[in-house]
Design a protein around this nucleic acid. Structure first.
Lengths: 189, 189
DNA sequence: CCTTTCCGCTACGCATCCGTAGCGTTATGC
DNA sequence: GCATAACGCTACGGATGCGTAGCGGAAAGG
């Protein structure tokens, strides 16, 4: 979508996407109807249809609007990097609405190829960071040669999401640190 | 719900719940409407309303009908037990429709307390098994004293689900074994 | 057998959402 | 200033799903 210079367009898009995100969290994908977005955002339904083809395109755009790949912390040590990344993820997943959005996206992606594509691209961004971090760790001999970054990612991100959905146990920074230390022990340098 | 002796009732319930599960996989929670279930199952809509209060109750019942807690493998070794459990989970998640159902349930549970309750009870069943397996492992000195079973569960189940949703990489038995061995290394006996 | 219970069918009224048309109004950008 | 582009509003027709009513037929089960 073109960046748009006209402030009216920018206002409209921001209001609509923001409202859509709120509705996605509150009511899920199916509950995020064009009508509901129009009513809550104050933007007329006809205007929404001037910008998006329909509900599916709007929801896709709303999901896409929150893509914010984490930065490479580069703290100097592998443990520092991983703790930074995992606590960031834990914060996002436990505090903000990010978790509900993530689950909604994962579920919807099972049935919509475009959402699946979006989800994979987002995951790939996380993967790229982890790959760099792991490779630096290998370079500093903090990890054995041949360590699979994808496996490390699974071992760190997986438990965060699983714990958040399942046990209802807190996913806080303490847990994040414990998790990193536990996983690192599985890779004797 | 009472077990029901009348074969007509049993037939109806089975047909409806089976169809509902199929629709949950194909179209998600929102797409599993009473009308769609009626049409596909051949059971009249009015009959469905004679058995369930509405869409929410039907979906809840459909989810509940697949609860099948894994058995305690009790192979004699910790590794054997964990490999059995994790390969079972990997199979279910990668082959069957279980994964789509699980994601749909997780997402819907974010907004429906009754589904959240169901989800937690199901998770608790898995947790109970892991707890026993871990405790036996501690008893045989295969795990350090004080090992947290919940953490082990997170480390094993989390990556399975995460990998299935994210990278699209295969979640097969080989991965399951690798995962178990990796995690076990994090707990020096 | 014969009563009870369950089921299928048709036909509703109601609500929600879709996506579009047309027209006036207002904010932008030149 | 002025033409243009964007927006709000009302009003549709169509589709889908909800949940209910009432009836007749058929299958249980005693």
């Amino acid at each position: 979508m073109t960046p748009a210079t006209d402030p009216r367009i920018r206002r409209t898009r921001a209001a609509v996407l923001g409202t859509a995100l709120g509705l996605l969290v509150e009511r899920g994908v199916a509950g995020t109807t064009v009508e509901a977005v129009a009513e809550r955002s104050g933007v007329a339904k006809t205007t929404i249809y001037r910008h998006w083809d329909g509900q599916a395109a709007l929801v896709l755009d709303a999901f896409a609007s929150v893509r914010r790949p984490p930065e490479d912390p580069d703290t100097g040590t592998l443990r520092g990097d991983l703790v930074a990344l995992v606590t960031g993820l834990a914060d996002a997943v436990s505090r903000g609405p990010a978790a509900a959005l993530w689950f909604a996206l994962v579920d919807a992606a099972e049935r919509d190829p475009r959402l699946a594509d979006l989800h994979h691209r987002e995951a790939e961004a996380r993967h790229a960071i982890i790959r760099r971090v792991v490779e630096r760790g290998v370079g500093r001999a903090e990890l054995p040669r041949g360590t699979d970054p994808a496996e490390v990612l699974d071992l760190l991100a997986g438990p965060i999401f699983y714990r958040r959905t399942t046990s209802g146990a807190p996913v806080d920074r303490r847990y994040a640190e414990r998790l990193v230390d536990r996983v690192l022990r599985a890779y004797p340098a």
